[in-house]
Amino acid sequence: MMHQPMKHNRPPMMKRIADASEPYLYSAPALILIVAVMLVPLVVGISYAFRDIQLLNPFSGGFVGLDHFRALGQDQAFYGALRNTLWWTGASVFLQFTFGLILALLLDKPFYGRGLVQALVFLPWAVPSFLAGLNWAWLFNPVIGPLPHWFYALGLMDEPHNILSDPHLAMWGPIAANVWWGIPFFAITLLAALQAIPRDLYEAASIDGAGPVQRFWSITLPFLAPTIAITVLLRTVWISNFADLIVVMTNGGPADRTQIVASYIFTQAFKRLDFGYASAIALVLLALLLVYSMLIVLLRQTMLNKG
């Protein structure tokens, strides 16, 4: 290939443009899609929070300022949903994490048939969430499911009835389904982190005379800590937004006892078609989550500074 000798040292214009634009060409299609279907609706959604948008009312659409937020301040159902969200998220994350960690530790030991066991215990994660919800709703149904009868036999219930229709117990239904469905996520993540711990560390520790419990506290836990921190943080945000199970199992009932903020937004948008109010709630939820993430980051920073 012939090339014109050039005296100046900068590469030719065309080549520089081509070189610089290459990564953008690769990422452009994904970016365009994200901006068009997520970022733009997000901005539009924020604007809805200050407007009167009702799908069935052709005269709606006007600017209402902070009206939605004032209404929200008076909305007892919203406060109830906020309490329920805390309860739902806290219990789900705690139980998923605990059982997930135990499962990961159990699977970290080699034993015959581990591959098969692993595939089986991770299977719930592949079950579509709506189906997991239906499945557990049916298990709690005394007509068709065994659980109420077992609870009755154990003396936990006076008669076999459906906890999903009991205002005091209903939240445990979706939480149970969520724990069943979410354990694999924690177990997979923690298992991978466990397996990344160099084995000779354990050997060195046992030669130094550390027992299994000491090894867990001095090696396993410190190594898992970053993974635990990040998965718990992400999972908390994700679960507090996760309305599928509740929509499927209880639809927020009975008496709004299982209504969380995310399902409340969905109900407002889907059932009442009040998009403006739904967006206002969503904006508040977004703000709360941002504050939560900020707090976590701050906490981490102070801990790092101390350490």
Binding site: V37, L42, I265, L289
Partner: peptide, 11 residues
């Protein structure tokens, strides 16, 4: 990070 339910109405 942001709640996808936020996008239901605008989308």
């Amino acid at each position: 990070m942001f709640p996808l339910v936020m996008l239901v109405a605008p989308i």
